[in-house]
Design a protein around this nucleic acid. Structure first.
Lengths: 228, 228
DNA sequence: GAATTTTAATGATATTTGTCATGTTTTTGA
DNA sequence: TCAAAAACATGACAAATATCATTAAAATTC
């Protein structure tokens, strides 16, 4: 099995704060796994006993509401880590993590992570920075969900998706989502999301080819996201 | 000036993980301040260089949206700490902190906090736990804002306010908020909040006496919050 | 303590958003 | 490759929520 020391992915997350020897220790205990498209890596309410490092693939982090509706809280791609919030707060997992395409992830046991936090304060600080940043993003999201109309939130989401996943060679946002998933991201009915996307296309702000979305006028989209 | 070692408040937050000597060090550098009702302790976008420990008083944490509307993200009372998210992620403050009544807070410089994180891993873990918990709460909040109707969110908020602030001897929730602040918490128009509160009163679920709110039927309120 | 400002309340109405129904297109899987 | 299922699209309508206008009540200030 490949070694963490050789893995390029660690450069993108808190594991970059570890020394060669520390990484070797992780390598000895880690397991690699493949999560196929549609499968769950973590499930809301369950307990996990370790941290996941996403080598590649894309996933959605969701919450099931009391009314049975799925809310997409966040998208995660290769390079990110998952599960640290749960093991740090010693609470069950708060979100479902579902693969949007096949994913390769590594699992590092909780004990190793906690040991490392005790001995490597740089690692510790990096994890705190990560979660603190996420908390700030979440707070912004609360505000936008509460105050912005659906149209504005859709515009915001499209820009955000392009930022996270980038674009392919033809300029389409490099993620495939159903209209329902887009609706569940912005917190609206699927039909509303479809209608608003159609309008944006009609207005020449975006291109739609099946599930593929290309932003044509980012400035306009940005204005819409701010209510203009 | 009073010493941290003598302060009862530290029992309620991460400072409880510090030894007597460590607290003494904080005491030497800390400053106490009074924030009067209506004044800001922190302002969105500003930089702070330390952590605040709230000795007593209550405050609201808000965000100003691009459309000029205020969103209340969280309520904080004596015992909590503030500003750690910002200094840990090395980002500007993300929220305005406004006193809802006079507050006494202590300020501990960033350098002392960061030093302590490096040397006391229990303190470090406690801070992580705190932020991780907050992140989980924020994610839940996103989901509820996005998916639940205003009425449900109001019911949820009333229960939440009672949990945080408790009740006075007559059973009224021990916090004074304007209708506008309640509206800004649940993310709706002030008129809508007023109407829904009046309905809850008419239905005998709550009592309203001016700004004072008493929950009469918590079970009913809980059902409403889940859409029944 | 009277005047002024802020807050609360409520009706009328407009807008936004959701739901239901229906048909089409695309994707999936035997 | 064809049938079934899922996803997409759109119209018609209903429900939720916001906005505007007005009045009443409460709090603040001079």
């Amino acid at each position: 099995m490949s070694r963490c020391t050789q893995c390029i992915i660690k450069r993108f997350n808190s594991l970059k704060k570890l020394t060669h020897d520390e990484l070797e220790k992780f390598s000895d205990h880690k397991t690699s796994l493949l999560i196929k498209k549609g499968e769950n890596l973590m499930t809301e309410g369950h307990t996990i006993n370790g941290l996941y490092c996403v080598k590649d693939g894309k996933c959605k982090l969701t919450k099931l509401n009391t009314n049975g509706k799925e809310q997409i809280i966040k998208f995660v791609k290769g390079g990110d880590i998952l599960g640290h919030r749960s093991i740090l707060s010693d609470e069950p997992v708060g979100l479902n993590v579902t693969a949007l395409e096949d994913m390769h992830v590594c699992f590092i046991p909780k004990g190793d992570i906690l040991d490392m936090i005790r001995t490597n304060s740089q690692f510790s600080l990096s994890l705190m920075k990560n979660i603190s940043h996420q908390l700030n993003e979440a707070n912004t999201s609360i505000s936008q969900m509460a105050q912005k109309p659906v149209k504005d939130r859709l515009a915001e989401t499209l820009i955000h998706l392009e930022e996270i996943f980038g674009v392919d060679k033809e300029g389409f946002i490099d993620i495939t989502l159903t209209r329902e998933e887009i609706a569940n991201t912005i917190g609206t009915a699927t039909e509303s999301a479809i209608r608003l996307l159609s309008n944006l296309k009609k207005d020449g702000v975006i291109d739609l080819t099946g599930k593929r979305i290309r932003i044509k006028e980012k400035a306009t989209l940005h204005n819409i996201s701010e209510g203009y």
